[in-house]
Amino acid sequence: MAAGGDHGSPDSYRSPLASRYASPEMCFVFSDRYKFRTWRQLWLWLAEAEQTLGLPITDEQIQEMKSNLENIDFKMAAEEEKRLRHDVMAHVHTFGHCCPKAAGIIHLGATSCYVGDNTDLIILRNALDLLLPKLARVISRLADFAKERASLPTLGFTHFQPAQLTTVGKRCCLWIQDLCMDLQNLKRVRDDLRFRGVKGTTGTQASFLQLFEGDDHKVEQLDKMVTEKAGFKRAFIITGQTYTRKVDIEVLSVLASLGASVHKICTDIRLLANLKEMEEPFEKQQIGSSAMPYKRNPMRSERCCSLARHLMTLVMDPLQTASVQWFERTLDDSANRRICLAEAFLTADTILNTLQNISEGLVVYPKVIERRIRQELPFMATENIIMAMVKAGGSRQDCHEKIRVLSQQAASVVKQEGGDNDLIERIQVDAYFSPIHSQLDHLLDPSSFTGRASQQVQRFLEEEVYPLLKPYESVMKVKAELCL
């Protein structure tokens, strides 16, 4: 049975990233139509530049190519590739079939990587351009969430054990800070992308030097003109047959890092959902379990974690691919890159769409948070109580021993009897502590235990987050809708 299948058929496997999760716009960027249309555009740009620099290419040939950029006979191309065992030459023939007058000058002087690699770089750039505003929107939604809850005390956790208090907004800023680093890295790697350009079979530009009869300047002009037509500021000066596969490492490393950030955020949300302090959106008709109707599973956060793990592992592909590119190139890269580049971007696209949807509907339960604080705060307040007693004339050592005994009794009630923490009640009825009984409410005010959390939130948002989001103001209103 021949390899390949009808990918629109229910009898043929289709990647869930495309069929179930990723956005239509990201799927289109990695589609065959987008790819092969870009090949034709690159052939047109090459012909236009070659004509401008004096090669015998007519206006009629150029116009014929322009008129057929979208006229792609995919069936013919597939048949040609089956016959020739070469995808680029299959599309040269297919393009030439609908451009008979231009057929002889299509791909003039070029090698397969002229269309293959340059198209990949265009796709990487455009895919990054799709991700950047999506990530900015996630940051914006979380920034709104953090600002609104900047002063809401909550129990902090280290080692997932109760620690000092923080605020809900401050905790959210930990998430935002990681995503801001990801946004900066995505922008950097996007701006650092260079075009492969017009380089020939081993990167020496020998074929173009021959076409222009040894004119170095025209060869350099050709490279520059096509690079500018493709919208790049610069091209690699040095290439082998391909652009260095280190570029793929750079791009997928940034995406993998984004995956790590999203995994951490969504894990926190899942843990908070278990504590009943916070939940992701839950639709009115949504079913959490087929057997347990009360369940409210954090399905979206779980999906993000599941896909983020996949995204983090994909960076190993370009690392290994770059390491086995012998001399000017081997074909070890080809099949692998067809999979890992598309999957990385479709996965990143999915987790950003999902995280935006989550961040637009996060639900906080202040009463649950308050109750958990009441359970733990008495123990945390013991040092403040000791200091207040010393100020009232008591002995630190005597007070410490009193607190120690009462704390152990209260802990026994919590752990052995399943009761509430009654340390404060014990202190309130103990005559030894009568000098500070009137101060206990103040000493137990949760806001006095959150330090500068709310001020940190305000400063972080104003100095770091809002300036970073400013270039994306025009796209901030787009909502994230999930079908599944």
Results as ranks from 00 to 15, higher is better:
D191P: 00
L443R: 03
T239I: 09
P162A: 05
E370G: 11
A3G: 10
H437K: 11
D117T: 00
L124F: 14
T267N: 09
C483F: 09
P281M: 10
M476L: 14
D216T: 10
T354L: 15
Q286V: 03
V189G: 12
L53C: 15
L275I: 10
I139M: 10
D120G: 07
W175N: 03
Q356G: 11
I424K: 15
L352P: 04
A127E: 09
F379P: 06
C304I: 15
A453T: 09
V262Y: 02
A335G: 13
M476V: 15
N126G: 12
Y466G: 14
I237S: 09
E220A: 11
T350R: 03
I105K: 14
D59E: 12
D6T: 12
L130G: 09
A480N: 15
L135N: 05
E417I: 05
R303Q: 06
E343D: 15
Q397F: 07
L55F: 02
A392S: 09
V413W: 14
F157R: 02
Q51M: 11
E228D: 10
Q177L: 12
S19G: 15
F145A: 04
L271W: 05
R245F: 00
L423H: 06
K66P: 05
Q164I: 10
E277D: 02
E464G: 05
L183V: 13
Y432I: 07
P366M: 03
N185V: 05
R234D: 10
G96K: 01
A90G: 14
V363M: 08
A127D: 00
T350Q: 10
P446R: 04
H91G: 09
N421K: 04
D87M: 00
H437D: 04
K187E: 08
D268V: 06
R372V: 01
Y114L: 04
T154Q: 12
A388S: 07
I237F: 05
H263N: 15
E473C: 12
D349A: 11
V457S: 05
F30C: 08
E220K: 08
I237H: 09
D223T: 03
R296G: 02
E64Q: 11
V168L: 08
D248P: 02
Y13C: 14
I249R: 01
G197I: 00
L222I: 07
E79P: 06
A322C: 12
K187V: 09
A150T: 06
E80M: 11
E213I: 13
L132I: 14
Q458P: 09
V115W: 00
C172V: 13
I385L: 14
F28S: 08
E50K: 03
G96Q: 04
T204H: 05
H97V: 14
D332Q: 02
A110V: 04
T119M: 02
I385C: 06
A102Q: 01
